[in-house]
Amino acid sequence: MRTQKSKIFKALIVIVCLTALILSSKTITSPLRIRIIDFLSPSLKTVNSFFTSARRVLPFGSLREENRLLRERISLLSRKIEELRIVSSDNDRLKELLNFRKTVPFITIPAQVIGRDPSNWSNSIILDKGINSGVRQNKAVLSTRGLVGRVLEVGRYSSKVLLVTDPNSKVGVMIQRNRQGGILVGRPDGRCRMIYIALDSDVMPGDKVITAGFGTIFPKDILVGEVLKVERAPGRLYKSAIIKTADDLSKLEEVMCIK
């Protein structure tokens, strides 16, 4: 009984200390954390490439089973065709990235996503490029389809990007069609909400949302997403809208960091 009480007491001390540590933090960035990620980045790359390959190979499982019933030669050929298809789709994706890089009026650094946020609260990704490759803190990150987020922690060989879908993210945006402004805030479910839209604004589902270019982080006129639903709570002075991001941010493989 006494040991049980002392265990509970120790646990309470641990929890109180942790609470004090959290309350003493002022920002979500931490230099110590990015150093650890820097150190772990080679293993993260390896694990990520293993899972990426596994994800690409998995659909072959059923095909392989089916092919076992067929002649060996047909099996070999069909597998080769599938392999070539993957190479071709990789090629298309990389070409798209390269073409996009040419059309973007900024100098960008291509980077690979090597890690994802394990938390259900925050939305962030880990990139395989850091200060050594020219990545800087508080610079926008794009995909071929639109805005991804901004670099928040930078190490030598890796960096962490706060996605626009993170609850801590806020981006000045506007509706492309009528230039009505608002603020885009993230939600843990991977969608965003555009708040502070004027009541007289005729914003409607399907409208494209672009960056407003206020401040120094996000350049103007970058596609963010499109309006899914417009809401107006009674008694509120502003409308709000649910925004679907231009790219599926949970499945990103390559991104570009603005230099």
């Binding site: 942790l18 540590l21 959290i22 990620i37 394990p118 938390s119 609260w121 880990i126 962490k160 801590n168």
Partner: peptide, 14 residues
């Protein structure tokens, strides 16, 4: 979780 996420440090540990 705290190391890999972008959130207040120690929050997930707590």
């Amino acid at each position: 979780k705290d190391i890999f996420a972008l959130d207040f440090l120690w929050i997930n540990a707590c």
